[in-house]
Design a protein around this nucleic acid. Structure first.
Length: 686
RNA sequence: GCCGACGUAGCUCAGUGGUAGAGCGGCUGUUUUGUAAACAGCGGGUCGCGGGUUCGAAUCCUGUCGUCGGCUCCA
């Protein structure tokens, strides 16, 4: 989805050469970090295990930043700002960087910009581009910079519109070069025009190079990403070197919409939402529910093998539980409204909340009896459905829902066991993702933000927990990125990040090391020395959210789930009514129980094969029979659209010979095959 | 929550102030069919919901709910 060049065999040297070839300075790691922070480029700091080299993203990001495309988009952002300034003279420009799929500019408009204004802006941009304005870099001192920004004689400059540019200037560290980019032209009357912008650059040489671009959307964006600041208007656009690339990108967006899990979820009958049920609360339809259960069964089996024990806890609990854990202080406003339990006098006796987290329940189970070091590790697992009052603007189908099911587990371990257990958990996650066919993920280690006070516990606990995670990554040779500020309030964590069809990042599986909740709940085990000790907790959820995982997988597979997950694995399609009984015989063999939902014509048969196949064991597959009076072409079309992996077409010839016409989702029509061979084929798939 | 956009039949959409439309799906009948849509007929909508403007509102204004793209956030 990303437009950044894919990770290739090119090494850092080749990358540096490429950068040189475009007359670009190599961007250093600290600069990159700052660009990302200041310019909102997705992704965070990439670190490889030896701490010396960023992740493969270094190559992609570096080569993107060093590319002509990057400069082109940066210049397109300036061009847009110039057009905006002409049309709306009172605007204040803030910041306008290239991003992964294009560029944006954050601007404060005197009156709110509407989408229809984009047409005008785009038109003016096209005119301005053609004027062949030279884009010149000028390096200035800090004082000169300030003078320029405040110089009302320059269009778009002056004290009235300088708020953000002055702040940006202040943010440039001392000693660093301060530069402006100046777009200049002389019109027929010999009058000089210019568009001047404080900017690190680099840019293309002339606006004439900016030909293939499109303004995409308007959004609100807080100045410097802080909710406490003013919300500016962000205009998104994209630009490419050629018309074909722009066209291809827009086409890709159209295609991505078709594999959107919300579209496929509806088409394939997986899940739905209803306004009267509530925002972000999914209703799972039969086919989606089967998919869920298959996923849960799969994970349950994986976990049993690793020594996890199932527990079950309520969907509701007294608020006291979460006061003790610290969740209330941090997340009170992100929980559903509280339920008050009142007595006859109307006095509140207790307050209950919908479960937003499973961990405190598992902690209570741990505490229910005295634990010996011999009992540890204790691994409690639960498919726990939790409810969180997500902000209305951020609910996104089942990727971000208000009710979702975590494949949650909590491990209570001795400090000695922590390293090994953590590695074990990461291995489960890797194995599970592999089996689900999700190999394209990133690993993010979320650590404490030293400037925030939302975290509980002592620094030495945090250091121990963080180094446990880093050490595990090193041992496993995992490439990860460090992301300060992404820790949970009780401990650092390792997250798996996967992109959706539109290229957006989603946090999937997570592992968290926690020294703090054991302290808050005063957890203990009796050690070899007969004295009480404090266990360490590992919170972990390989899917993260079952809903999110299914949503992402729907997009990854474009609805064509692998055979073992497909809600309907085999569709049996009789050609005419008289073949329905034969279809039924096959269906019962494949699924292992009598068929429902259609009435085969008893006069006609093929039923003799039931005796012939009596010795073949039933397979327990998910099977459907389409005995409707449609043409075979129609039936095939419908099952194809439902992405059913295997179709068996049966007619006169098959009843005669005991065969099925086999049509596979990926391979197409394979012709008639003896039923025994079909079974062997299905066996291999299952 | 904030900024922008969108809500018309089960689904996808057309309809910009004057009698609500199409295709698919559904139902009924005919067709009994061999690898991506048989044919014909018939149903089906308080135009998300509430208020307002108007002789008249799907259409204009306003509020509200829902959805989509962002921002922020995700224990």
């Amino acid at each position: 989805m990303a437009n950044w060049p894919r990770a290739s065999s090119r090494g850092a040297e080749a990358c540096a050469q490429a950068a040189e070839a475009t007359a670009m300075p190599i961007i250093t790691a600290p600069q990159r970090m700052e660009i990302r922070r200041n310019f909102g480029i997705p992704g965070s700091i990439m670190v490889k295990t030896d701490n010396s080299f960023p992740w493969f993203g270094r190559h992609t990001l570096m080569s993107y930043e060093a590319s002509y495309l990057y400069r082109l988009r940066h210049s397109a952002a300036h061009l847009m700002a110039q057009a905006v300034q002409e049309i709306f003279p009172k605007v204040q420009l803030a910041i306008g960087p290239p991003v992964e799929n294009g560029f944006y500019y954050d601007i404060e408009f005197p009156e709110q910009l509407r989408e229809e204004d984009l047409v005008r802006i785009e038109k003016r941009m096209k005119e301005l581009a053609k004027l062949d304005q030279r884009i010149e870099r000028m390096e200035v001192s800090r004082d000169e910079a300030k003078e320029l920004i405040l110089d009302a004689a320059i269009p778009g400059m002056g004290a009235e519109v300088a708020e953000y540019k002055l702040q940006l200037l202040d943010a440039i560290p001392g000693g660093e070069t301060i530069s402006f980019y100046d777009q200049k032209r002389t019109d027929r009357e010999g009058v000089q025009h210019r568009f001047l912008d404080l900017c690190r650059g680099p840019h293309v040489e002339t606006t004439k190079e900016i030909k293939h671009f499109k303004l995409m959307s308007i959004a609100g964006a807080y100045w410097r990403g802080n909710v406490k600041n003013k919300q500016l208007t962000r205009v998104y656009g994209t630009a490419f070197e050629t018309a074909e690339e722009l066209e291809a990108y827009l086409h890709m967006l159209e295609e991505a919409k078709k594999r959107d899990h919300r579209v496929l979820g509806k088409e394939l009958g997986l899940f739905m939402f209803s306004p009267i049920v509530g925002t972000g609360l999914a209703l799972w339809l039969p086919k989606g529910a089967i998919l869920r259960e298959t996923m849960i069964d799969f994970m349950r089996q994986e976990q049993i093998k690793k020594g996890y024990e199932p527990v079950v806890t309520p969907n509701l609990a007294s608020i006291k539980l979460y006061e003790k854990s610290g969740h209330i202080i941090n997340y009170r406003d992100k929980m559903f409204p509280f339920m008050l339990d009142t007595n006859a006098e109307g006095e509140v006796e207790d307050t209950f909340i919908l479960k937003p987290m499973n961990c405190p329940f598992h902690i209570e189970i741990y505490k229910s009896r005295l634990r010996s070091y011999r009992d540890l590790p204790v691994r409690y697992a639960e498919f726990g459905t939790v409810y969180r009052y997500e902000q209305s603007g951020e609910v996104t189908g089942i990727l971000r829902a208000r009710g979702f099911t975590q494949d949650d587990a909590h491990l209570f371990v001795t400090p000695d066991q922590l390293g090994e257990e953590f590695i074990g958990v990461v291995e489960i996650i890797q194995s599970v993702l592999g089996k689900l066919g999700l190999t394209n993920y990133r690993v993010r280690v979320g650590t404490k933000d030293p400037t925030s006070d939302k975290y509980i516990g002592h620094d030495d606990n945090w250091e121990k927990a963080t180094s446990a995670i880093i050490n595990a990554c090193e041992k496993l040779g995992l490439e990860y990125e460090l992301s300060p500020g992404d820790a949970a309030f009780y401990g650092p964590k390792l997250d798996i990040i996967i992109k959706d069809a539109l290229g957006r990042d989603w946090q999937m599986g997570t592992v968290q090391v926690d020294y703090n909740l054991p302290e808050r709940f005063d957890l203990e085990y009796i050690g070899e020395d007969s004295k009480p000790h404090r266990p360490v907790m590992i919170h972990r959820a390989p899917f993260g959210s079952l809903e999110r995982m299914i949503g992402l997988m729907t997009e990854q597979y474009a609805g064509a789930f692998p055979f073992w997950l497909a809600p309907v694995q085999v569709a049996i399609l009789p050609i005419a009514d008289r073949h329905a009984r034969y279809a039924q015989v096959i269906a019962e063999k494949l699924q292992g129980y009598p068929s429902h939902g259609y009435k085969p014509d008893a006069e006609h048969d093929g039923g003799q094969w039931a005796d012939t196949w009596a010795d073949i064991p039933a397979m327990g597959l998910r099977v459907t029979v389409d005995a409707s009076r449609e043409t075979i072409g129609k039936k095939i079309r419908e099952q194809t659209q439902m992405k059913v992996p295997v179709m068996l077409i049966v007619g006169d010839k098959d009843i005669e010979a005991g065969t099925c016409g086999v049509r596979m989702r990926e391979e197409g029509d394979l012709g008639a095959q003896p039923f025994a061979e079909v079974l062997a084929k299905l066996q291999a798939l299952a």
